[in-house]
Design a protein around this nucleic acid. Structure first.
Length: 676
DNA sequence: ATAGGGTTAG
């Protein structure tokens, strides 16, 4: 009765659990109904009874392609790629000829497990069987090559395809984006439209990621506008999340937030994208608040959102929030997650807890290149060049391949520690022995290294024969070396180049202006100020933050708004004679304003935000407590000298984290070999 | 009847 009214297939499809399939199966047998084995295998597998599917398959008298496919596809759905591949091999040795779906699924399994070799083998089989022109098979091969980073090979397959559909196009677009060829991705999209195809959600996703990569907000706006006009991808969480991410990556947190708040459906990934957007754009407080807010909406933070939040903690510079997240990570059992582990090492290092960073690094479940890089960078910002080098050596011994980021961190560590010759040596070794192409950032480090060490002429020579045209960052490094070593002639060349290259951040204008101020070239100083205003940039006000019993206190220059300003100033004034007795001489040259009165200059130096924050710390903590201060800009040269003496007079260890690195002051000396 | 492409993070 039941069987007469409905087809066996639709009945099987309606079964929600294997008990009902078994019943139906029995009914079919007793009523002499013909059973289609592949359908039955698929039905059991769908309800999770893969072992029954296997049993049925094993008992089949003769197994045709469809039965093999049913089982292989079942494993593909279960995401067990190794099973898929071994079933495929079994099938081949049983001399069954695979069809388009077998090849498609088998190659997909290779892509999932990044098994390029098996993938190539199966693709050869497919071509032999005449499936070279099959859109499904070819698209899965495209994806295989994309996933395995073989973009050129993917392009060759793509160019050889007779028919292409939206999946093949989107695979290539996404692949180009992943391999950093975003402009080409946009070009491929244009070709797709010329072919008369409309993009779907996945294509749009690729385009949005391409925009995130190239950082061109006009293209982004047109893609976004296109989605709105055509009313496509509405409520598509993945596409909308990528829009949030794209705007956040390009510094448009305002737009990212609007889209995020308007989304009808959000998931953990949407929250993570927003959190890391805030963290990356210097809004650590908001990032951490979002982590709390996502939980109040019932979303459990995953490793990505925690990594984003840790990024915010390292920006903040105080270790307490980071330790709290560390505790959360341990309670959730996420401490062995690769990204989380690395982010913790990075956060502790950047929050001044180098020993904790080192302990986590030593106890890490496994060490990959990125973890080594984080530890090398961690030592680097603390001016521990020797230790950075020793981690690098251990990395080599462990046969972990150093990459461009490793050398960037290593060179910068050596530079901050004044290890000039080692820096030159490793720069050459990078190219010669490790086959890492030097990028702009490596040249920047090297120029910085030489200029910092006073070897300005040598640095200039290097800038001039880098082969390619040196970018602004290289000239900036040279200029700051010149400023600190009073090299006026080379400095003027560098300053001119920097201005020609149109700096896009206020800090660079400030550097140039400081250089001219140091050479008393007040005319140029005002020219630079005008250029800065014309470019629509304002000087970022400097501020320092002190942490006192878990609370943060921020100070600006001459911050009279603080209720305890008088006491703070009293402490600084009280310390000064003792500092002078020990040999401190205020370097009024460091006052880069046109002020004639010496006493006024000394007063200005005394009011620098880092000193106010330190004095506040001395005022509010028990004698002997270590002080941690963070500053958003670089510490001034005179403060650097003064804090050495303050550490003796106050009997404190003082740690200052500025925009670039850590300075550990203790008993009158600093961890850095020289200030710059 | 079955099959290919998707978001965040170190």
């Amino acid at each position: 009765m039941l069987l007469q009214k409905w087809s066996p297939k639709s009945l099987l499809l309606s079964c929600r659990n294997n008990a009902s399939i078994s019943k139906l199966h029995a009914l079919m047998i007793t009523s002499g109904f013909s059973i289609n084995p592949p359908q039955l295998i698929a039905a059991y597998a769908r309800t999770g009874a893969i072992h029954i599917a296997h049993k049925l398959f094993d008992n089949l008298p003769n197994r045709a392609v469809d039965s093999w496919n049913a089982l292989i596809i079942a494993h593909s759905r279960l995401n067990t790629p190794s099973q898929v591949i071994s079933l495929y091999r079994e099938m081949i040795s049983s001399r069954i000829r695979p069809d388009s779906s077998t090849f498609t699924v088998a190659i997909k399994a290779c892509a999932t497990s990044l098994d390029l070799e098996s993938g190539r083998e199966i693709w050869r089989d497919a071509v032999e069987c005449g499936y070279r022109g099959d859109v499904f098979v070819a698209s899965s091969v495209l994806n295989l090559f994309v996933k395995c980073g073989e973009m050129d090979e993917a392009m060759r397959v793509f160019d050889g395809m007779g028919r292409r559909d939206v999946v093949s196009w989107s695979t290539v677009i996404a692949g180009l984006v992943r391999s950093g060829r975003a402009w080409e991705a946009l070009e491929v999209y244009r070709r797709m439209r010329e072919d008369g195809l409309e993009g779907d959600g996945v294509v749009m996703l690729g385009l949005i990621q391409a925009c995130a990569c190239v950082g061109d907000l006009r293209i982004a706006a047109s893609v976004h506008g296109y989605l709105i006009c055509r009313l496509i991808c509405v409520d598509d969480v993945v596409v909308e999340t990528s829009l949030v991410d794209m705007y956040a990556k390009n510094g448009r947190l305002d737009l990212a937030l609007i889209i995020f708040r308007r989304m009808r459906l959000r998931n953990v990934v949407s929250w993570s994208a927003l959190i890391s957007g805030y963290a990356r754009n210097g809004n650590p407080g908001d990032a951490l608040m979002l982590l709390v807010e996502m939980q109040s909406h019932g979303f459990e933070p995953d490793s990505a959102s925690l990594v984003g939040a840790l990024l915010a903690c390292s920006d903040l510079g105080f270790s307490r929030p980071g330790s709290e997240i560390h505790g959360f990570v341990v309670r959730r059992g996420l401490q062995t997650d690769r990204a989380v582990e690395t982010a913790l090492v990075d956060t502790y290092a950047k929050c001044g807890s180098l020993p904790r960073a080192r302990a986590l690094f030593k106890g890490a479940s496994a060490r990959d290149g990125i973890l080594y890089n984080a530890m090398i960078a961690g030592y680097g910002i603390h001016g521990r060049g020797e230790e950075a080098l020793s981690v690098f050596r251990r990395m080599i011994v462990a046969r972990t391949r150093p990459d461009h980021a490793t050398f960037a961190s290593l060179l910068s560590a050596l530079s901050h520690s004044g290890m000039v010759d080692e820096g030159r040596y490793w720069f050459n070794a990078m190219i010669r022995d490790y086959k890492v192409e030097p990028m702009e950032k490596h040249y920047v480090s090297l120029v910085d290294l030489l200029a910092r060490g006073g070897r300005v002429e040598e640095a200039r020579g290097l800038v001039e024969d880098t082969g390619c045209k040196p970018g602004i960052a290289v000239w900036v490094a040279l200029l700051s070396g010149c400023l600190n070593h009073n090299k006026i002639l080379v400095g003027e060349v560098a300053a001119k180049k920097v201005l020609e290259l149109k700096p896009n951040c206020p800090g660079i204008y400030t550097l140039v202006s400081n250089f001219f101020a140091a050479t008393k070239n007040w005319e140029e100083v005002s020219t630079v100020r005008r250029a800065m205003r014309a470019a629509g940039m304002k000087k970022v006000p400097g501020y320092s933050v002190a942490e006192v019993s878990g609370k943060l206190h921020a100070f600006r220059v001459e911050d009279k708004s603080h209720p305890e300003y008088e006491q703070i100033l009293g402490i600084l004034e009280g310390m000064e004679p003792k500092m002078r007795d020990l040999g401190y001489v205020p370097n009024t040259e460091a006052v880069l304003h046109r002020v004639e009165d010496e006493e006024a200059k000394v007063k200005m130096l005394r009011n620098h935000s880092e000193r106010l924050a330190i004095a506040f710390g001395i005022l509010k903590t028990r004698p002997g407590t270590r002080l941690l201060i963070t500053k958003n800009l670089r510490v001034c040269g005179d403060c650097h000298e003064a804090i050495k003496f303050m550490s003796i007079v106050a009997g404190r260890e003082i740690v200052v984290r500025d925009a670039k690195r850590f300075h550990h002051f203790k008993n009158g000396s600093c961890s850095c070999s020289d200030y710059w």
